[in-house]
């Protein structure tokens, strides 16, 4: 497999048309005791580009996410944000630099209305008092902008569907981070229709042109629909990096099946 083009940083034709490089990961390795979780990872994503990061359980996806979001420090290698080499000190530090993640649990509070979730821990205040009206207006505008259809920003999140909840979490991250957005399995545990809504949301975010998106997923066909480029992570290495137009679900499945056969 390693004879597949592993050179993640080789520009390809499909890279043109995207904006500046928002994030580049070079030669990242990470060990946990005797276990090598990641080996010489090279990855990049440009503004306006959606990168699909595929990989089986245990391939190292979550370790890689946690390094990009500042949760883990890599043993070696470097991370460049907007071309600047940066040592990410913490999740908060990464977030302040514009890297945010929407995790599977979404970090929403069911009991609070949509707009308070949208501004959770970033509430707008006048003196000690919350500016409910202003937060409602801004949350409503931000959700409209990404085309999220919810009944009212005053509705409790509890009352919303899985797709709407996901959309709120995405919109919240976009609203505050807005440089590199990692979506961790946004389509897991979601029906076809709701999954479709999320894919359309990702499409609209791509059209803004200023946001680089890394989509972590299992479902290859959905990923092929929405991603500009696909990376395959196997046993801690990126073994495949190609524009989705130049590959197919069949090819990806074949690569993964080959892994099983040799295992």
């Amino acid at each position: 497999m390693s004879e597949e083009d592993t050179a993640a940083d080789t520009p390809t034709a499909a890279d043109s048309g995207f904006g500046a490089e928002a994030l580049r990961v070079e030669g990242i390795s990470k060990r946990f005791g005797p276990v090598t979780a990641l080996r010489d990872i090279n990855l990049h994503v440009r503004a306006g580009e959606v990168l699909g990061l595929l990989g089986d359980n245990g391939a190292g996806k979550s370790t890689l996410i946690k390094i990009i979001t500042g949760f883990h420090r890599p043993d070696s290698g470097r991370i460049l944000i907007d071309g600047q080499e940066t040592a990410l000190r913490s999740v908060a530090h990464a977030r302040s630099l514009g890297i945010d993640t929407v995790y599977q649990d979404l970090a929403l509070v069911d009991e609070l209305p949509v707009y308070l979730n949208f501004f959770l821990n970033k509430e707008l205040t006048l003196g000690p008092f919350l500016r409910h009206g202003e937060m409602k207006r801004r949350a409503s505008a931000a959700l409209d902008e990404v085309g999220i259809n919810i009944p009212s920003v005053g509705a409790e999140v509890r009352a919303l569907s899985g797709g709407q909840r996901q959309a709120i979490a995405v919109a919240r991250a976009v609203n505050t981070a807005a440089k590199v957005l990692l979506l961790d399995e946004p389509l897991a545990a979601m029906g076809a229709r709701e999954g479709g809504q999320i894919l359309r949301l990702i499409d609209r975010l791509r059209e803004r042109g200023d946001l680089a998106i890394i989509l972590i997923a299992h479902n290859y066909s959905q990923v092929m629909d929405v991603c500009d480029r696909v990376n395959l992570l196997q046993h801690g290495e990126i073994t495949f990096d190609r524009p989705s137009a130049e590959t197919s679900v069949a090819e990806l499945l074949e690569l993964v099946h080959a892994e099983y056969r040799t295992a």
Partner: peptide, 8 residues
């Protein structure tokens, strides 16, 4: 309501 989300 959701201590984990609050902490996150």
């Amino acid at each position: 309501g959701n201590p984990l989300s609050a902490a996150e």
